[in-house]
Design a protein around this nucleic acid. Sequence first.
DNA 1: GCGCAGCGTCC
DNA 2: GGACGC
DNA 3: GCGC
Length: 329
Amino acid sequence: MGYYEDNQTKDNKYHFKVINYRKAITAIRALDYEITSEEMARKIPRVGKKIAQKIGECVSLGRIKKLDHLDWDQERLKVETLFRSVYGVGAEKALEWYNKGLRTLDDLRKLPDLTKNQISGLHYYDDLQKRIPRAEVEEIGKVVESAAKKLHPDIQSQVTGSYRRGKPDCGDIDIVVARPDIDTGEELFLIMEHILNELIIQGFLVDHLSLPTWSDDMANAPKHFKYMGICKLPGKGSVHRHIDILVVPWIHLGAALLYFTGNDICNRSMRLLAANRGMRLSDKGLFTGVMRGPKRKRLNEGTWVAGRTEREIFDYLGINYLEPFEREC
DNA sequence: GCGCAGCGTCC
DNA sequence: GGACGC
DNA sequence: GCGC
Ligand SMILES: O=c1ccn([C@H]2C[C@H](O)[C@@H](COP(=O)(O)OP(=O)(O)OP(=O)(O)O)O2)c(=O)[nH]1
Ligand SMILES: [Mg+2]
């Protein structure tokens, strides 16, 4: 029995509801048996009283009462969801525009004060809505890898994100690039620059959503760079795709892979676990000796202890290694 | 009743 | 510093 | 909304 319960997120209250619905859904999806009662549902971790109750309704009535009279403000929900599906449009803009009486994407296209990313998001809207088959993700991964290896043949490039978790299709392409024993911001920025120049000349990168910025302070410190843009394989019928490229210090490669492979819920759970053990986990690594004040606010940086490999981080956290395909929650 | 990840860029 | 994104 |  499949279950889907979708909601709209508007930060600070509904936000965590939606996250918990997602957690419950993936927990249920991981089961290999049918749920036939509310009591049975209640036993599943992350399925609490309220969600179990709804499952109970679904089993006995075939529907969820709450959903019946939900259509009420459905117009607002639908329009907000549509607006938020545009890159660069979040909860705030979507609501603001709805309240101004805007209803369609063509209404948005007429606005004079769109940001650069919103303009791109609207321009490539249809293409960006399309899922990307694994085969095309691989092809795109190779384009980036060859561009990188032109500079130094020992540069490594890996496709991460949902692709690495084994999904049959992906929302975008997430790539992590690193070079053995290269850690400094200066060297890594040059690698990033080279890759981008190369891919722009090729006509592969056609638009930029967010560019890495160079600041010469701490040029010799380990520092990573993130690029976000729009790419397109050569050929007529090819579709524009959203691509994120991360160039990272060799010592942070494991942490970066862990982060960029996700999924987001898995990252947040691991980071929470680290925090509860006096540590901090980020895309740069695992840090110990982290002090936290009231409201769990971090008081110090902590000391970097792991991040070269993913396994190192799992080990240091004292949890079993998870293969990428197992990192769904 | 409380907290819920951590960090970067754009504007 | 908020909005938006990964 | 969930777990502590
Ligand atoms: O709020 C977020 C969003 C993403 N990520 C990490 C995990 C995620 O797997 C990775 C890449 O993000 P993306 O948005 O591309 O997600 P995905 O898991 O690759 O799914 P999709 O197929 O939609 O691209 O970045 C986070 O840590 N927090
Ligand atoms: Mg992705």
